Amino acid sequence: MNAHTRTLLTVICEAALEKKLVADLQVLGAPGWTISDARGRGSRGVRSAEWNTEGNIRLEVICARELAERIALHLQTRYYANYAMVCYLAQVEVLRAEKFQ
């Protein structure tokens, strides 16, 4: 097995931001992403996802560390003040490195 190190950027935020985040990821050069519905409780209370724009989404991007940090900084600067959002980075190993530049 030939594993390669990349960075996983995970963003959990309000579902109402999905279209804006997808546009941001395209402009910033993300190689791809996965978005799924998310439910839970945090500092802003319980998010139930009963309405399309009321719940949370979990957005994941696997890419080079520099790009992950650039995306996270952009999201922090643009959205943290006005939206419920959490971002975190984790080192991961991938088997098809060319897909996650």
Rank of each mutant, 00 (worst) to 15 (best):
M1Y: 04
M1S: 12
H4R: 08
T5L: 10
R6T: 04
R6D: 05
T7G: 06
L9R: 04
T10D: 01
T10R: 14
V11D: 05
V11H: 03
V11E: 05
C13V: 07
A16H: 06
E18M: 09
E18H: 05
K19S: 14
K20F: 04
L21F: 05
V22Y: 00
A23L: 11
A23K: 12
Q26F: 06
Q26L: 11
V27Y: 01
G29K: 10
A30S: 15
W33P: 03
W33T: 08
T34D: 04
T34N: 14
I35M: 08
I35P: 04
I35D: 04
A38W: 00
R39H: 13
R41P: 00
R41Q: 10
G42I: 06
S43P: 01
S43L: 09
R44G: 03
G45E: 01
G45Y: 01
A49W: 02
W51R: 14
W51P: 00
E54V: 03
G55Y: 02
G55I: 02
I57V: 11
I57W: 01
I57A: 01
I57Y: 00
R58P: 00
L59R: 00
L59G: 02
V61H: 06
I62L: 05
C63Q: 07
E66Q: 14
E66K: 13
L67T: 02
A68I: 07
R70P: 00
I71S: 11
A72H: 06
L73Q: 15
L73H: 09
L75C: 08
Q76T: 11
T77W: 02
R78T: 15
Y80A: 15
N82T: 13
N82G: 12
Y83W: 13
Y83V: 12
C87V: 13
Y88S: 06
L89Q: 07
L89P: 05
A90W: 01
Q91P: 04
V92W: 10
L95W: 08
R96E: 12
R96M: 08
A97Y: 05
E98I: 05
F100M: 03
Q101H: 13
